[in-house]
Simulated assay, not measured.
Amino acid sequence: MGLFNKVLASIGIGAAKVDTKLHESQLSLGESITGVVEMTGGNIDQQIDDIYLSLCATYTKEVDDRKVTKHAIIEKWKIAQSFVIHAGEKKQFPFSFSLPIDTPITVGRTRVWLHTGLDIKNAIDPTDEDYIRVQPTRVMNAVFQVMENLGFRLKEAECKEAAYHVRKRLPFVQEFEFVPVSGEFRGKLDEVEIIFFPHALGECELLMQVDRRARGLTGLFAEALDLDETFIRVTIHEQHIQTLQTDLAALIRRYA
Protein backbone atom coordinates (compact mmCIF):
# COMPACT_ATOMS: atom_id res chain seq x y z
CA MET A 1 0.00 0.00 0.00
CA GLY A 2 2.91 2.35 0.80
CA LEU A 3 4.37 2.06 -2.72
CA PHE A 4 0.94 2.53 -4.31
CA ASN A 5 0.33 5.68 -2.22
CA LYS A 6 3.74 6.97 -3.24
CA VAL A 7 2.89 6.52 -6.91
CA LEU A 8 -0.45 8.30 -6.42
CA ALA A 9 1.25 11.18 -4.55
CA SER A 10 3.73 11.61 -7.41
CA ILE A 11 0.83 12.55 -9.69
CA GLY A 12 -0.84 14.73 -7.06
CA ILE A 13 -3.36 12.27 -5.63
CA GLY A 14 -3.16 12.10 -1.85
CA ALA A 15 -0.14 14.43 -1.82
CA ALA A 16 0.59 17.30 0.57
CA LYS A 17 -1.55 20.41 0.11
CA VAL A 18 -0.77 24.07 0.66
CA ASP A 19 -3.07 26.99 1.53
CA THR A 20 -1.83 30.56 2.04
CA LYS A 21 -3.93 32.89 4.16
CA LEU A 22 -3.26 36.63 3.93
CA HIS A 23 -4.00 38.86 6.89
CA GLU A 24 -4.94 41.67 4.47
CA SER A 25 -5.72 41.36 0.76
CA GLN A 26 -5.81 45.13 0.14
CA LEU A 27 -2.47 46.89 0.59
CA SER A 28 -0.79 50.16 -0.27
CA LEU A 29 2.64 50.23 -1.87
CA GLY A 30 5.36 49.87 0.76
CA GLU A 31 3.11 48.15 3.31
CA SER A 32 3.84 44.66 4.62
CA ILE A 33 2.33 41.51 3.13
CA THR A 34 1.68 39.28 6.12
CA GLY A 35 0.04 35.92 6.49
CA VAL A 36 0.65 32.25 7.06
CA VAL A 37 1.29 29.30 4.75
CA GLU A 38 -0.61 26.25 6.01
CA MET A 39 0.54 22.82 4.91
CA THR A 40 -1.30 19.54 5.34
CA GLY A 41 0.43 16.22 4.77
CA GLY A 42 -1.12 13.74 2.39
CA ASN A 43 -1.34 9.94 2.59
CA ILE A 44 2.43 9.46 2.86
CA ASP A 45 5.47 11.26 4.24
CA GLN A 46 7.00 13.60 1.67
CA GLN A 47 10.30 15.47 1.44
CA ILE A 48 9.76 19.17 0.79
CA ASP A 49 12.77 20.95 -0.72
CA ASP A 50 11.45 24.53 -0.62
CA ILE A 51 8.42 26.68 0.10
CA TYR A 52 8.47 29.91 -1.86
CA LEU A 53 6.18 32.88 -2.38
CA SER A 54 6.19 34.80 -5.67
CA LEU A 55 4.51 38.17 -6.18
CA CYS A 56 3.21 38.18 -9.75
CA ALA A 57 1.45 40.56 -12.12
CA THR A 58 0.00 40.50 -15.63
CA TYR A 59 1.12 42.69 -18.51
CA THR A 60 0.49 42.80 -22.26
CA LYS A 61 2.98 42.22 -25.05
CA GLU A 62 2.63 42.85 -28.79
CA VAL A 63 3.16 39.63 -30.76
CA ASP A 64 2.48 39.61 -34.51
CA ASP A 65 0.26 42.71 -34.27
CA ARG A 66 -1.86 41.27 -31.49
CA LYS A 67 -1.79 41.64 -27.72
CA VAL A 68 -1.00 38.65 -25.53
CA THR A 69 -1.10 38.52 -21.74
CA LYS A 70 2.15 37.67 -19.99
CA HIS A 71 3.02 37.02 -16.33
CA ALA A 72 5.96 38.62 -14.54
CA ILE A 73 7.48 37.84 -11.15
CA ILE A 74 7.93 41.09 -9.23
CA GLU A 75 9.62 39.50 -6.22
CA LYS A 76 10.24 36.01 -4.87
CA TRP A 77 10.85 34.89 -1.28
CA LYS A 78 11.87 31.52 0.15
CA ILE A 79 10.22 30.88 3.53
CA ALA A 80 11.30 27.29 4.28
CA GLN A 81 13.56 24.60 2.90
CA SER A 82 14.39 20.92 3.27
CA PHE A 83 11.95 19.32 5.68
CA VAL A 84 9.62 16.32 5.83
CA ILE A 85 5.85 16.68 6.05
CA HIS A 86 4.44 13.50 7.60
CA ALA A 87 1.16 11.90 6.54
CA GLY A 88 -1.73 13.93 7.91
CA GLU A 89 0.61 16.40 9.64
CA LYS A 90 -0.22 20.11 9.75
CA LYS A 91 2.45 22.82 9.65
CA GLN A 92 2.27 26.61 9.60
CA PHE A 93 4.85 29.07 8.25
CA PRO A 94 4.18 32.75 9.09
CA PHE A 95 5.64 35.36 6.74
CA SER A 96 5.99 39.13 6.47
CA PHE A 97 7.44 40.98 3.48
CA SER A 98 7.35 44.55 2.29
CA LEU A 99 5.26 45.09 -0.85
CA PRO A 100 7.79 46.31 -3.45
CA ILE A 101 7.40 49.99 -4.28
CA ASP A 102 7.33 49.24 -8.05
CA THR A 103 4.40 46.81 -7.83
CA PRO A 104 1.67 47.91 -10.26
CA ILE A 105 -1.52 49.15 -8.64
CA THR A 106 -4.71 47.17 -9.18
CA VAL A 107 -6.69 49.10 -11.79
CA GLY A 108 -8.12 48.24 -15.20
CA ARG A 109 -7.12 44.77 -16.37
CA THR A 110 -4.02 44.57 -14.17
CA ARG A 111 -3.97 41.63 -11.75
CA VAL A 112 -1.53 41.13 -8.87
CA TRP A 113 -1.32 37.92 -6.86
CA LEU A 114 0.81 35.93 -4.45
CA HIS A 115 1.76 32.50 -5.78
CA THR A 116 2.70 29.84 -3.23
CA GLY A 117 4.69 26.86 -4.41
CA LEU A 118 6.23 23.74 -2.91
CA ASP A 119 9.22 21.99 -4.47
CA ILE A 120 8.80 18.23 -4.15
CA LYS A 121 11.15 15.95 -6.07
CA ASN A 122 9.56 13.43 -8.42
CA ALA A 123 6.07 14.79 -7.78
CA ILE A 124 3.67 17.45 -9.00
CA ASP A 125 4.37 20.61 -7.02
CA PRO A 126 1.28 21.84 -5.06
CA THR A 127 0.49 25.54 -5.54
CA ASP A 128 -1.90 28.20 -4.28
CA GLU A 129 -2.77 31.69 -5.57
CA ASP A 130 -4.14 34.65 -3.62
CA TYR A 131 -5.04 37.93 -5.32
CA ILE A 132 -4.09 41.28 -3.83
CA ARG A 133 -5.59 44.71 -4.41
CA VAL A 134 -2.70 47.19 -4.54
CA GLN A 135 -3.37 50.84 -3.68
CA PRO A 136 -1.22 53.81 -4.82
CA THR A 137 1.08 55.92 -2.67
CA ARG A 138 0.03 59.34 -1.38
CA VAL A 139 2.05 61.06 -4.12
CA MET A 140 0.43 58.95 -6.85
CA ASN A 141 -3.03 59.62 -5.41
CA ALA A 142 -2.27 63.34 -5.46
CA VAL A 143 -1.37 63.16 -9.18
CA PHE A 144 -4.63 61.34 -9.96
CA GLN A 145 -6.61 64.00 -8.07
CA VAL A 146 -4.81 66.86 -9.82
CA MET A 147 -5.46 65.38 -13.27
CA GLU A 148 -9.16 65.13 -12.41
CA ASN A 149 -9.17 68.71 -11.14
CA LEU A 150 -7.59 69.86 -14.42
CA GLY A 151 -10.43 68.29 -16.41
CA PHE A 152 -8.83 64.97 -17.35
CA ARG A 153 -10.54 61.59 -17.17
CA LEU A 154 -8.65 58.32 -16.79
CA LYS A 155 -9.45 56.51 -20.03
CA GLU A 156 -7.21 53.46 -19.67
CA ALA A 157 -4.65 51.93 -17.33
CA GLU A 158 -2.57 49.03 -18.53
CA CYS A 159 0.70 47.26 -17.83
CA LYS A 160 2.67 46.97 -21.08
CA GLU A 161 6.00 45.51 -22.07
CA ALA A 162 8.51 48.35 -21.94
CA ALA A 163 11.39 49.21 -24.24
CA TYR A 164 14.79 48.73 -22.62
CA HIS A 165 15.48 52.47 -22.48
CA VAL A 166 12.27 53.06 -20.51
CA ARG A 167 12.01 50.05 -18.17
CA LYS A 168 13.62 49.88 -14.77
CA ARG A 169 13.76 46.60 -12.81
CA LEU A 170 10.68 44.97 -14.38
CA PRO A 171 10.00 44.04 -18.02
CA PHE A 172 6.90 46.25 -18.11
CA VAL A 173 5.59 49.66 -17.12
CA GLN A 174 2.09 50.68 -16.04
CA GLU A 175 0.67 53.40 -18.28
CA PHE A 176 -2.19 55.70 -17.30
CA GLU A 177 -3.92 57.40 -20.22
CA PHE A 178 -5.83 60.60 -19.45
CA VAL A 179 -8.07 62.47 -21.90
CA PRO A 180 -9.24 66.08 -21.41
CA VAL A 181 -13.03 66.25 -21.10
CA SER A 182 -13.32 69.76 -19.63
CA GLY A 183 -11.19 72.71 -18.62
CA GLU A 184 -8.46 74.58 -20.48
CA PHE A 185 -6.85 71.54 -22.13
CA ARG A 186 -9.98 70.27 -23.83
CA GLY A 187 -9.53 70.83 -27.56
CA LYS A 188 -5.79 71.45 -27.14
CA LEU A 189 -4.61 67.95 -26.24
CA ASP A 190 -5.57 64.48 -27.39
CA GLU A 191 -4.26 62.82 -24.24
CA VAL A 192 -1.66 62.78 -21.51
CA GLU A 193 -0.01 59.47 -20.61
CA ILE A 194 1.73 59.06 -17.25
CA ILE A 195 4.11 56.36 -16.03
CA PHE A 196 5.08 56.30 -12.34
CA PHE A 197 8.52 55.25 -11.15
CA PRO A 198 8.29 55.43 -7.33
CA HIS A 199 11.70 55.85 -5.67
CA ALA A 200 10.32 55.77 -2.13
CA LEU A 201 6.98 56.22 -0.38
CA GLY A 202 7.31 60.00 -0.50
CA GLU A 203 9.12 60.37 -3.83
CA CYS A 204 8.05 59.45 -7.35
CA GLU A 205 9.46 60.09 -10.81
CA LEU A 206 6.87 60.79 -13.52
CA LEU A 207 7.35 60.13 -17.21
CA MET A 208 4.66 62.14 -18.99
CA GLN A 209 3.77 62.03 -22.66
CA VAL A 210 1.77 65.03 -23.84
CA ASP A 211 -0.04 64.39 -27.12
CA ARG A 212 -1.08 67.66 -28.76
CA ARG A 213 -4.20 67.81 -30.90
CA ALA A 214 -3.49 68.32 -34.62
CA ARG A 215 -4.19 71.84 -35.90
CA GLY A 216 -4.24 72.44 -39.65
CA LEU A 217 -2.07 70.74 -42.27
CA THR A 218 1.13 71.28 -40.30
CA GLY A 219 -0.43 69.73 -37.24
CA LEU A 220 -1.74 66.76 -39.20
CA PHE A 221 1.71 66.20 -40.71
CA ALA A 222 3.29 66.29 -37.27
CA GLU A 223 0.69 63.89 -35.92
CA ALA A 224 1.31 61.44 -38.77
CA LEU A 225 5.00 61.37 -37.85
CA ASP A 226 4.32 61.23 -34.09
CA LEU A 227 6.05 64.60 -33.75
CA ASP A 228 3.14 65.90 -31.69
CA GLU A 229 4.17 63.86 -28.67
CA THR A 230 6.40 65.42 -26.03
CA PHE A 231 8.02 63.42 -23.23
CA ILE A 232 8.60 65.06 -19.86
CA ARG A 233 10.41 63.70 -16.81
CA VAL A 234 9.75 65.22 -13.42
CA THR A 235 10.32 64.05 -9.83
CA ILE A 236 7.65 64.79 -7.22
CA HIS A 237 8.15 64.70 -3.45
CA GLU A 238 5.46 64.66 -0.78
CA GLN A 239 6.24 68.26 0.15
CA HIS A 240 5.22 69.28 -3.41
CA ILE A 241 1.64 68.04 -2.99
CA GLN A 242 0.32 71.43 -1.80
CA THR A 243 1.45 73.13 -5.04
CA LEU A 244 1.12 70.10 -7.32
CA GLN A 245 -1.95 71.31 -9.20
CA THR A 246 -0.36 74.64 -10.08
CA ASP A 247 2.95 73.01 -11.00
CA LEU A 248 1.48 70.23 -13.18
CA ALA A 249 -0.90 72.63 -14.93
CA ALA A 250 2.03 74.92 -15.80
CA LEU A 251 4.09 71.98 -17.01
CA ILE A 252 1.33 70.60 -19.27
CA ARG A 253 0.48 74.13 -20.45
CA ARG A 254 4.08 74.63 -21.58
CA TYR A 255 3.78 71.72 -24.02
CA ALA A 256 0.11 72.00 -24.97
Rank of each mutant, 00 (worst) to 15 (best):
P104C: 04
F197T: 00
I195K: 05
E75Y: 08
E238N: 08
D130P: 11
D45I: 05
V112C: 09
V181D: 12
V63E: 15
D64C: 02
L8K: 12
I73W: 07
F185Y: 07
L99W: 07
R212I: 10
K91R: 13
M39T: 06
L118E: 08
Q239N: 15
Y59Q: 00
F176K: 00
K168L: 11
G30M: 04
I124V: 15
N141H: 02
V181H: 09
R138W: 08
V234D: 09
A256C: 12
D228H: 12
V192S: 04
L189K: 01
S10E: 05
S28I: 00
A15Y: 05
E24Y: 13
T103F: 11
V143D: 01
T60M: 12
F178V: 02
L27R: 00
K121N: 14
H115W: 14
D50V: 02
T60E: 15
D211G: 02
S28Q: 10
P136M: 00
M140Q: 14
A87L: 11
T106D: 08
H71F: 12
A222E: 15
D49W: 08
A16V: 13
S82G: 06
L22W: 07
I73H: 07
G35H: 05
I241H: 08
R186C: 10
Y255L: 05
Q209P: 01
R169W: 10
L170S: 04
T40M: 15
A142R: 02
K160M: 14
G187V: 04
L217F: 15
R215I: 11
I236M: 01
